[in-house]
Amino acid sequence: MATLFIADLHLHPEEPAITAGFLRFLRGEARRADALYILGDLFEAWIGDDDPQPLHQQIAREINALVASGVPCYFIHGNRDFLLGKRFARESGMTLLPEEQRLELYGRPVLILHGDTLCTDDAGYQAFRAKVHQPWLQSLFLALPLFIRRRIAAKMRDGSKSANSHKSIEIMDVNPLAVVAAMEQHHVQWLIHGHTHRPAVHELTANGQPAFRVVLGAWHAEGSMVKVTTDNVELIAFPF
């Protein structure tokens, strides 16, 4: 058996191939797992659990079917779907986790998170993140009519794309010191995250010992998962 991790699917009605690939994954590989962890950005955007988007309802049903089959599913919010709430979690059967979670997997301590909090060199993004994660602002946004929320979300996505086009690759990647600090805070030698869309296994030193940072890939042209077993931690790319 194995525990599986995925992130950055960015599901959207205009990307049916990614949705189809995810459904095949849920009905196939995921059914044989001990558990599935989704590390954020499952959806391209999330404006509230009350959004009657058919895609959201379809995904909720499919994840619920996975959970009903005996495979628990856990979710850490990403920067795209940080407003995903208790209602969708209940409908899908997912368990919501805090932004950083330490796991014990087959005797191996592992830290999991989305990854955006590690990009500390991007001061502009971190300031924006701190603002939109204020509970009062989120409550105010969710109280707005859906059509207004859609307009705001579209404007924010356009603004994000424009801002990122002027940033260096280094600024938008994780900060090495932030990585080590997180691993030492949680006393782990393994870290799994997404967000950067740069799949790789990085070797480093943390807690005075060899350590590893495993980065999930985004589901653009193929799927990406991390498979943790008793003997191994594998980063695997696979066709939709």
Rank of each mutant, 00 (worst) to 15 (best):
P13T: 08
L144W: 03
G78C: 12
D51R: 01
I59H: 04
T230H: 14
L9R: 01
I38C: 13
A154R: 03
A154Q: 02
M156E: 01
S160D: 01
L113P: 01
S224V: 09
A45F: 08
A127Q: 15
H56I: 15
H10K: 12
M225Q: 14
G194C: 07
D231E: 15
E203I: 00
L113H: 12
P54Y: 06
M172H: 03
P54C: 08
Q185W: 00
L42P: 04
D50K: 14
K86D: 11
G21V: 02
Q134D: 14
G93C: 10
L204N: 08
D50W: 09
N164F: 01
T196C: 05
A60C: 15
P210T: 02
C73P: 07
N232C: 13
A30Q: 06
G115D: 08
A130Q: 15
I47Q: 01
T19D: 02
L105Q: 11
V188F: 07
L103C: 09
A123N: 09
W136C: 05
P210D: 07
L113K: 05
R149T: 04
A127E: 15
I38S: 08
T3A: 14
R157Q: 06
W219T: 05
T3P: 09
I38K: 02
A17G: 00
T205R: 13
T205W: 09
L103S: 08
A218R: 03
A68V: 13
D34I: 00
S165N: 14
R31T: 14
R198V: 11
A153V: 01
G28D: 04
C119H: 05
H166I: 00
P145D: 07
T205Y: 11
P98Y: 07
L137Y: 09
I18L: 11
A206I: 05
A206S: 08
W190F: 14
